[in-house]
């Protein structure tokens, strides 16, 4: 197990390194620079600024400086907001984004699995059709459309919930709802089909023949097996939710990490772009690692380590 984790750790570092490198060169391919604006500044001032941020150095030197900043975990000051460092932006934005993300994952997972299980248990009944209609809608409506619709209906028309910003639990409802519906729908469909398949397995018949209660048969015997595909796509879904937060945070004016990320790109704020990208990719790679670990817990046949074999 320990060897496995160490091995994965090396892979994770390599992955993040490749992403960071790609981002750096792609970013430099984008025309423009932080000081290239409509309002032209004095040439001398601009040169001073570039020197200050090492933007006049050759690309290779910049790249090495950048790698150094990653290793030391200090991404330096933001160019556009000189009073802030990238680290302070991340420190402020991440808890908010994390809160949004965690609620989204929780709600998508719980309601998606519940919807899928009920649909499978009531296969070809009204509940099944209703659940699958919701799921199809959820998959086909993009979250930014859903977000604006929710704001229009629940915030503007009915005035039940606040339309934007992030301060109380009530403020969270709409963004989480908008962000969670898509993943929830995918999880629901997957759980349903996987559950339908699992319920026809012989070991379910065995469990019923033991006289177990329907709850035990479904939750203990069927669900644990049916969740395997759900865990498999959790990695992809997490990536989806992560990128979804950019859009949702923008729409709901949530001061999370996504907001700084998008602003950073728009303003060519190089340190902010690099910092957020590396942070995001490191986070995602770590989440995927957790998903793989969860796999091993759900199904004992999946071995995370090579030592020892079946007897």
């Amino acid at each position: 197990m320990v060897t496995y984790i160490l091995k994965r750790l090396v892979y994770m570092i390599v992955t993040v390194f490749i992403i960071a490198t790609l981002t750096f060169f792609l970013m430099n391919l984008i025309p423009g620079s932080p000081f290239n604006e409509e309002r032209t500044t004095n040439a001398a001032v601009q040169q001073n600024l570039e020197e200050h941020y090492h933007l006049n150095e050759p690309l290779a030197v910049q790249y090495i400086l950048y790698l150094k900043s990653i290793i030391t975990l200090d991404f330096g000051p933001s160019i556009k907001q000189p009073t802030e460092t990238v680290n302070s932006l991340l420190g402020r934005g991440f808890p908010i984004s994390a809160e949004l993300g965690i609620w989204t994952v929780l709600i998508a997972l719980v309601s998606g699995v519940a919807l899928g299980v009920f649909a499978a248990l009531k296969h070809n009944h009204l509940i099944d059709y209703m659940a699958m209609t919701i799921a199809v809608l959820g998959i086909s409506i993009p979250n930014f459309v859903l977000a604006t619709m929710l704001i229009q209906q629940l915030a503007v028309q009915l005035e039940w919930l606040p339309a934007a910003t992030w301060s109380s639990p009530a403020h969270m409802v709409l963004p989480v709802l908008a962000l969670a519906t898509g993943p929830m729908a995918i999880i629901a469909r997957l759980t349903r089909s996987s559950m339908l398949e699992t319920l026809t397995q012989d070991y379910i018949k065995t469990a019923r023949a033991k006289g177990l209660s329907p709850y035990k048969v479904v939750v203990k015997h069927a669900l644990k097996n049916a969740l395997m595909p759900v865990v498999t796509i959790m990695g992809t879904l997490l990536a989806g939710i992560l990128t979804g937060t950019f859009v949702i945070e923008k729409i709901f004016a949530i001061p999370g990490m996504g907001k700084y990320f998008v602003e950073g790109i728009n303003q060519r704020d190089y340190p902010v772009i690099m910092g957020t990208t590396v942070f995001y990719s490191a986070f995602l790679v770590f989440m995927l690692f957790l998903v793989d670990i969860a796999y091993g817990f759900l199904d004992p046949r999946i071995k995370l380590h090579k030592e020892g074999g079946s007897s």
Binding site: Q201, D202, Y203, K205, T206, A207, A209, K210, K220, H221, K224, N225, L298, D299, P300, R301
Partner: peptide, 16 residues
Amino acid sequence: SMIFQDPMTALNPTLT
């Protein structure tokens, strides 16, 4: 009690 045909599938693979 009942015993089913295929012992390879009659046991739940994820439980001891």
